[in-house]
Simulated scan of single mutants.
Amino acid sequence: MSKSNDLDAGPLGAELEAGIKGFEGLREISKFDTGQSNPTYLLKADSGAYVLRAKPHGQLLKSAHQVDREFRVMQALSGSNVPVPQMLYLSKEDSSIGRMFFVMSYLEGRIFWQPDLPECDRDERGPIYDAMNAALAALHDVDPSAVGLGDFGKPGSYFERQLSRWSKQYKASETQPNRDMDALILWLEKHLPADDGQVSLVHGDYRIDNMIFAQDKPEILAVLDWELSTLGHPLADLAYQCMQWRLPHNTGFRGLGGLDRKALGLPSEEDYVAAYCRRRQIERIEHWSFYLAFSFFRLAAILQGVLKRALDGNASNPKRAKEMGVAVPVLAAMAMQLTREEA
């Protein structure tokens, strides 16, 4: 975390004192060094600690960095079985910092940056993964209309729409040709499963480092980073998280690939999927290779956008962005290997 020099505490503090009941005396602003998408800050005030999440500076891709959507979905999930922070304030585009932002409660807890959980005892790792599994199933069991999110996205044809969206996003941020990505897009278009009518809230970036856990037990205090959330197909979230089992460990991905998961006390991909299916009363999942390949493609498209922003000078964490941009060819190659296994 670094002291922020791009936010003026005077105007911001005045806006928050007018907009948040009980907010008083903004004293310190620090920028979290982690994260690639929307810059996030810790605010320390006389009235307590808060977290501010804002749009980045510069020219943005269409439909990206919609912090108002993050605010809306977390506000709607308050009181549900899905743990989220308390939403306190949403600014307008012409805010005191010159762009839209929201403020939420600050939660003291643990964030696990590595999915193999090296800081935890073996017996704690399984329950942590089970807590993630339970929260994901709870999210997909939420009735979007019942929490005021019936219009949060277009129902149906999720993978068709997402494939179109991320193909366009990828092309808009492409910095050099990639044969695997081009072939992958064609394969996904050809093997797109028929829409089965399932619609749920999807997080869009469901992974362990987007959660805050309690300090002393395997309990999730909050699921964070809802920028990519929408109405969609629940298996998109499940497959996206299950990429973690396949991504190589000794790389920037910090995946579980190549590790002895049983010795570490971690569930296998098969066991994790089976637990999710039990919770949601699903008998079996068809087209699993498609869902996984799509997840690899989507992540590659996201990271390509991160790389493009870094090259353009607009990334939240430029050094990390360039490192992750190198990962795009690796993801595309892994996805193409999945397509060959399917064939």
Score class of each variant (00 low, 15 high):
339 T>K: 10
198 Q>G: 02
10 G>F: 05
203 H>I: 05
182 D>T: 15
135 A>R: 08
213 F>M: 00
206 Y>R: 02
12 L>R: 07
213 F>E: 00
334 M>G: 02
250 N>C: 09
30 S>T: 15
52 L>W: 06
285 I>F: 11
28 E>C: 14
204 G>T: 03
169 Q>Y: 13
32 F>H: 13
227 E>K: 04
110 R>I: 06
148 G>Q: 08
294 F>C: 01
252 G>R: 06
286 E>L: 05
164 S>R: 15
51 V>R: 11
25 G>Q: 14
247 L>R: 06
226 W>R: 02
35 G>W: 14
211 M>A: 09
323 E>V: 14
267 P>R: 10
200 S>N: 11
110 R>D: 06
283 E>C: 06
195 D>M: 11
304 Q>A: 07
198 Q>C: 08
87 M>I: 02
106 Y>Q: 03
55 K>E: 15
99 R>P: 06
73 V>D: 00
299 L>Q: 06
206 Y>H: 08
254 R>K: 15
284 R>Y: 10
220 I>G: 02
259 L>N: 09
42 L>C: 09
132 M>R: 08
133 N>I: 07
147 V>T: 11
64 A>E: 13
285 I>T: 09
172 A>D: 15
216 D>W: 04
126 G>M: 14
204 G>K: 05
14 A>Y: 10
270 E>V: 08
210 N>D: 02
176 Q>F: 14
123 D>W: 10
97 I>G: 06
117 L>V: 02
52 L>N: 13
225 D>C: 04
260 D>K: 11
58 G>E: 09
220 I>C: 05
163 L>E: 13
328 V>D: 03
281 Q>S: 15
25 G>R: 12
343 A>C: 04
80 S>T: 07
252 G>M: 05
314 N>K: 03
205 D>Q: 08
254 R>V: 13
115 P>A: 05
279 R>I: 11
147 V>F: 06
39 P>F: 12
223 V>H: 00
299 L>E: 11
303 L>A: 02
14 A>R: 15
312 D>I: 11
328 V>K: 01
105 S>Q: 05
316 S>M: 06
338 L>R: 05
72 R>Y: 05
341 E>Q: 08
138 A>C: 05
226 W>K: 00
209 D>Q: 04
1 M>A: 13
276 Y>A: 07
42 L>G: 13
280 R>E: 14
103 V>Y: 03
29 I>G: 13
12 L>I: 14
175 T>M: 12
247 L>H: 03
2 S>V: 15
261 R>A: 06
82 V>Y: 00
235 L>C: 03
228 L>H: 03
204 G>V: 03
291 Y>T: 00
239 A>S: 09
75 Q>S: 13
198 Q>M: 13
129 Y>E: 03
181 M>P: 03
191 H>L: 13
245 W>Y: 09
